[in-house]
Nucleic acid binder design. Structure first.
Length: 265
DNA sequence: CCGGTTGTATGCAATAGAGT
DNA sequence: ACTCTATTGCATACAACCGG
């Protein structure tokens, strides 16, 4: 019986051609947690943050805000106040007096339209609340807030409770932009509002919403003009990130995987 | 009533194809 | 060569539904 590897006469390990960004991020995560590598990496990127051992945490697919929301024990009044305190909409008083159903509906949370619960802003829908929020400043504020509830930076190193290094890693793709859906792009064009970069949403999330003093790293394979750098992110190449780390105890496939990065640019 | 399943909706990585 | 859009695949969230 033939199979694709026989047909292609491919006899190397998968690690020789793997291009999966999450896999590389997982390997990086592993290496950061061995030996003195975390400190070494922090030195390499020139971070000022000191590691506080009992507060240190390193996270893949950092969804802190989603899980904070999920962990709320208080009821709907608390959730509504939390949203309004963070969002600070100009029509706050109006929103305070809506029923739960109407509050959800105002933000277009049609996929989770509930009369029982104030639903997470991750469920709000731009296309649905567009008609409810004519003012562009308020509209954009709501968009950025909603996006933050779904954003997940690739790797976040909490060097302490209040400081972190936020890493957005790319293998071949470029920085994402908001809005993403075509109907939303149409709305932004009509309102003459510019697109927002993925990195600037992450900055808003870390500093404004979570209140964490953050340094930003954009971890990529090669420098390209296609990236919309926002200046706040320090660009680090994958091979630079691995360069000073100790990998002699790693299995061969990891060494080979890292070796491949040298030829990337 | 509980718990699993289904349907809908969202984000993100990545690709292909069309346009500039 | 770069940019933009549409699409696919995976992961997740939540309401509604359904069977025991």
């Amino acid at each position: 019986m033939m199979n694709i590897r026989k047909l292609l006469n491919y006899n190397d390990g998968y690690y020789m051609i793997n291009r999966e960004e999450r896999n590389l991020a997982a390997i990086f995560y592993h290496i950061l947690l061995t030996g003195n590598n975390l400190t070494q990496f922090i030195n390499t990127i020139g971070s000022d943050f000191l590691i506080t051992d009992n507060e240190l945490g390193i996270y893949l697919e950092y969804a802190y805000i989603r899980d904070l929301w999920n962990n709320i024990k208080q009821g709907n009044d608390f959730k509504r106040k939390l949203i309004l305190d963070l969002l600070q909409p100009s029509n706050r008083q109006e929103l305070e007096n809506l029923t739960i159903f109407d509050f959800n509906d105002y933000f277009g949370a049609k996929r989770a339209l509930s009369s029982k619960n104030i639903v997470s802003p991750s469920n709000w829908s731009i296309a649905n609340y567009d008609k409810n929020i004519p003012d562009n400043d308020d509209f954009l504020k709501v968009c950025k807030f909603k996006w933050c509830f779904n954003a997940k930076p690739d790797i976040v190193i909490h060097t302490s409770h209040n400081t972190a290094i936020c890493i957005e890693a790319k293998f071949e793709s470029i920085e994402g932009i908001y809005p993403s859906k075509s109907i939303e792009k149409t709305i932004f064009n009509r309102r003459k509002i510019s697109n927002i970069g993925q990195l600037s949403i992450q900055k808003h999330l870390m500093e404004e919403i979570l209140g964490v003093k953050t340094e930003y790293i954009f971890l990529i394979q090669k420098k390209s003009s296609s990236h919309i750098y926002n200046g706040k992110h320090k660009i680090v190449l994958w091979k630079e990130a691995f360069a000073n780390l100790e990998i002699s105890d790693c299995p061969n496939f990891i060494k080979e995987c890292i070796k491949r990065l040298d030829n990337a640019d």
